[in-house]
């Protein structure tokens, strides 16, 4: 009798719990510098987890992923600054421009394959950045900034920062949950089939265009929300930091480091990446060589451990397999 592999281990709740507990620490201890670090870490987790949906599950390498972060950031920021909208409402509404771009431009661009798609997303990112640099209603090259009095409605700058932090933590948790749900749903199976062999997928009854666009849209929602939180806390947004190509590529690095196409991979990858970076920056001897070391590590992972840390752990510790995917 064929035993079907069911979900016998509560993988998702455990992962979410770990992330939630870690995120809760600075709130409980009231440690602002740890809160700052974890804020950034949670942002990276969100970016890596969301890009994994289009790159890991569907196999479409997106260089332009950060464009959704910038669009969400700008959308929400403008609403808060120009119209005095409350952060939470602005963040949700800020998702709209990101989702529109993902759906409309995505539909056109997802017809391309491989390197062509990757380059096209790069073009979209750079075009958006160049455009926003010239777009005066959004502040042009200088961008937009808050009048500090805006934070009053949240009980002051510190409370606003805490609000942004809690929001970011929730977004990260939601992104992980969404990633898990996608992977274990029929939809995820369709994505992976498209990744393996799109032409076979079509003959099997999968609609590639609609499926890919849906994946792209899903991958756009979470960075947009994260962007709203990030720039709300910073109080200033400008094209360079909103549409930073390096950050886009970093999300890919984190995904590969942790394990492409897995749920835990991007989370682990983001955590390890950020820890490494913090370590390199603070160690005086290594600081100037930071990028070089990062490059060497990335190369080692890419050449010798293509299934990332998750793959390595699963291979060396079979007991872990049911707990880590």
């Amino acid at each position: 009798m064929l035993r079907l592999r069911g979900r016998s281990r509560p993988f998702l709740p455990v992962l979410l719990l770990i992330v939630a507990v870690v995120a809760a620490v600075p709130l409980v201890t009231g440690n602002p510098s740890m809160r700052e670090e974890l804020f950034f870490m949670l942002l990276l987790v969100t970016l890596a987890t969301s890009v994994n949906v289009i790159t890991g599950y569907t196999g479409y390498v997106s260089f332009g992923h950060i464009v959704f972060f910038g669009l969400g950031g700008y959308g929400a920021f403008w609403l808060m600054q120009a119209l005095g909208v409350h952060f939470l409402v602005a963040a949700v509404l800020g998702v709209i421009p990101a989702v529109l771009v993902a759906a409309v431009v995505g539909a056109a661009v997802l017809r391309l394959r491989g390197a062509y798609f990757a380059l096209a997303t790069l073009g979209i990112l750079e075009a958006t950045k160049a455009f926003m640099t010239n777009f005066d209603p959004a502040g042009g090259a200088v961008g937009l900034s808050f009048n500090f009095s805006i934070y009053a409605q949240y009980g002051g700058a510190k409370s606003a920062a805490e609000l942004a932090y809690v929001f970011m933590a929730l977004v990260a948790l939601a992104a992980i949950a969404a990633s898990y749900l996608v992977r274990h749903a029929k939809f995820g199976l369709a994505l992976m089939t498209i990744r393996e062999d799109q032409d076979a997928a079509v003959v099997l009854g999968i609609d590639p265009a609609r499926t890919k666009v849906a994946a792209f849209v899903i991958s756009a929602v979470f960075p947009a929300l994260a962007g709203a939180a990030f720039f709300f806390k910073n109080g200033i947004i400008e094209p360079g930091s909103a549409f930073d190509l390096t950050r886009s590529i970093e999300s890919l690095v984190m995904v590969v480091l942790g394990g492409v196409g897995t749920v835990a991979g991007p989370v682990i990858g983001a955590a390890v990446y950020e820890w490494l970076r913090g370590f390199l920056i603070t160690s005086p001897a290594l600081a100037s060589f930071q990028l070089t070391i990062a490059g060497v590590l990335l190369l080692v992972v890419v050449l010798f451990a293509t299934s990332g840390l998750v793959g390595v752990l699963r291979a060396r510790f079979p007991a872990v397999r049911e707990w880590l995917e």
Binding site: H184, A185, K186, L189, A190, T193, A201, L204, G205, I206
Partner: peptide, 13 residues
């Protein structure tokens, strides 16, 4: 399973 889920019968996972 892919065959079963996306073919004529379009079964759930």
């Amino acid at each position: 399973t892919v065959g079963a889920c996306f073919g004529r019968d379009g079964l759930g996972l």
